[in-house]
């Protein structure tokens, strides 16, 4: 078991080393999953749950999915789809959740599991959105403004016309539970038109620095 973990961790931490291009190969491996799982912009629940934002999700917790009792119980007992747990589960699902509905026998090769996990990681909204590396730095004065979450909740009315407050991603990214600094950085990137979407540019453009801080404080508090 330990050896497998090390392989996964290497694949994740050093994509240019042992498993370069893992996500691309993972897309091929994922074909085995497609009859029951969708992933991507329009992913919906099929037999199994959609796999956007899977890493970090509590097992058996996606709305609109008819899970086995065993999977729901496992989630309540604290099973969370971390990369390590996924690697174990995908080896032989019924070793981890014996009465799961998932009839898939498992992926024997550690590199297949690493690849498919790397592929699924490309569908984390945090990865897509909070990869704020290209966004201009926001001055510490702005980053450290203490936002009023009550005002943020009111202002969030505009956001949740499109972005769902329960974190569901049905074509637009989840914006809940972000670190405040990421939220502030991204909104300022729209406000200053470094990010391109005109809907976001106009909305962020109408917000003051205090209002952006208020939204960041509120959305961070939303689970």
């Amino acid at each position: 078991m330990l050896g497998k973990h090390i392989l996964v961790i290497m694949a994740v931490a050093c994509p240019s080393y042992a498993f370069a291009g893992a996500a691309e190969r993972g897309e091929m491996v994922f074909k085995k999953c497609r009859s029951c799982h969708e992933v991507g912009t329009f992913a919906k629940a099929k037999v199994g749950p959609p796999l956007n934002d899977l890493i970090g999700r509590v097992a058996g917790s996606h709305a609109n999915v008819k899970y086995s009792k065993a999977m729901v119980a496992a989630g309540k007992d604290g099973l969370v789809w971390t990369e390590e747990v996924l690697d174990q589960y995908l080896t032989r699902p019924r070793d981890i959740v014996p009465k799961t509905n998932m009839t898939f026998r498992g992926l024997k090769k550690p590199e297949d599991r690493a690849d498919v996990i790397a592929y699924l990681k490309t569908f984390l909204s945090d990865e897509i959105i909070v990869s704020a590396s290209n966004d201009p730095d926001v001055s510490p004065d702005i980053l450290t403004i203490a936002g009023d979450p009550e005002y943020g909740e009111y202002l969030s009315g505009t956001c949740v016309t499109c972005h769902q407050v329960d974190g569901t991603d049905q074509g637009l990214p989840s914006i809940t539970g972000w670190p405040q600094s990421s939220f502030v950085t991204v909104l300022h990137a729209y406000k200053t038109k470094h990010r391109e979407n005109p809907v976001m540019q106009q909305f962020a453009g109408a917000l003051s620095n205090d209002e952006i801080a208020a939204l960041a404080a509120y959305f961070q508090s939303v689970p």
Binding site: F42, V160, Q164, D166, T168, D169, Q170, L172, N197
Partner: peptide, 28 residues
């Protein structure tokens, strides 16, 4: 703002996908 004449097919598709997300969002 308003979309521009002559935008790329990719931009137009993204705009459509955004609208689908909006429909789910506003109805929720």
């Amino acid at each position: 703002f308003v979309s521009k004449v002559g935008e790329s097919a990719e931009t137009r598709q993204t705009t459509y996908e955004e609208s689908v997300g909006w429909y789910s969002g506003i109805t929720a």
